[in-house]
Design a protein around this nucleic acid. Sequence first.
DNA 1: CGGCGTCTTGAGTCACCTCAATGTTCGTGG
DNA 2: CCACGAACATTGAGGTGACTCAAGACGCCG
Lengths: 237, 237
Amino acid sequence: MTTVRLGKIKNACQNCGVRQLCLPTSLDGNEFNLMDEVVTHRFKLQAGDHLYKTGDEFHGIYAVKSGALKTSGVTIDGREQVTGFHLYGEIVGLDAVDEKIHPCDAIALTDTEVCHLPFKKLREASAKLPNLLEDLTKIMSREIRREEHVLMLLGTTTAEQRIARFLVNLYERLQKRGELENTITLFMSRQDIGNYLGLAIETVSRQFKSLRDKGIINVDKKKVEILAMEELKTLAL
Amino acid sequence: MTTVRLGKIKNACQNCGVRQLCLPTSLDGNEFNLMDEVVTHRFKLQAGDHLYKTGDEFHGIYAVKSGALKTSGVTIDGREQVTGFHLYGEIVGLDAVDEKIHPCDAIALTDTEVCHLPFKKLREASAKLPNLLEDLTKIMSREIRREEHVLMLLGTTTAEQRIARFLVNLYERLQKRGELENTITLFMSRQDIGNYLGLAIETVSRQFKSLRDKGIINVDKKKVEILAMEELKTLAL
DNA sequence: CGGCGTCTTGAGTCACCTCAATGTTCGTGG
DNA sequence: CCACGAACATTGAGGTGACTCAAGACGCCG
């Protein structure tokens, strides 16, 4: 993990490519000056690097500028449980604000850049900028809703439903980022997918095969081409 | 659902029995005056009453003053999915801050009182009171972590583990509220428990029976007496 | 008492897990 | 460049935990 100081870079946030997706979505020109005082450091990670580990002291949240991360906790019996995949434009670390200790690991799945947002500074800036305060609470609310969504996905659903929902969800998030091809490049392993969806790795593999046999997708290693989105969405129901 | 105006009640929050558990945990005397301007209404619900429904416009969050609620969403295919049980001292509605639309139902499980916290007012007050802003972000963070916790519970775990964890978690939350008896009164139906844990209602019933046969708990209708907490915790691993 | 909702209990089935073997990709070093 | 091993992925065979279906018990209320 290498560090970039942003102190000298003016309007770092304002000129950022993922500004519309990130935290400060409703700030205007002048307000960004204050934001630049909050965001002073950026980290570069390689696939497999830990951004933070379970039990680490909390120093702030992180905005993913490029790449992708997974967050995963360790259950009491020592097994890993992936709790989410986080694309660029998303925020990680919000679950540590309360206890000041990270309750899970955050691991880069590919080359990834993250901006560090010291939470104390962020709170102070929020007290001055009503728009920023609104953005902050919205981001936290969105994270709560995202997890509720996963929760609903993990209820009593079949393996096929879970895989279908996973693919539809991933597709829609990539689409929101302007990646309009109908071929998704999975940036996580089958292991991670299975873990996230509560399925054995073999089941993930078999479901991919099954969807391929039905002519709904094409799978080649990490590349998943969606051939029949409507049918896939029907299976996700 | 009946409404109580709190306009005339001074220091409503300061004198509240669940203050230490609720949102404004770090305020002092003067700061509570501002809080009383935020919290102007309280609602009384009977078992089965909806506090809000999916799709309802968001007007603010709610602090549970007494009783308990469940929140449940409706999956795309129309089935219900319980996403949480909320005791007094906890907050519901945080998942709607972002989109201004409630993404799930909140239903009283018993006679329940909730305080209404208009979110706009709460934000304005937070900009003035650093302590309140800290409390607000902490509460939202805690909710994120709570859901992550449920997520980890729903991964690849057996029915026995889920039931054991459910009971341990409920016991610990009640203990935190000073209810020190080792007999828990379940305030939700088997249906709700099964739905929440991703289990069929029959499986819930059988697991209770199994734990009873092992001498770990005693079950009589809604009453669950914990006979061997250590063993229960071991099963929860 | 009878009807209804909730819960329990039993029997049979199936979706998914486990175990095991093979195939593929990729990095490393000779 | 190829050999080798490690990590990842696929595929098959078999077992089982939890679901489904169905019946019965219990409590509640008119």
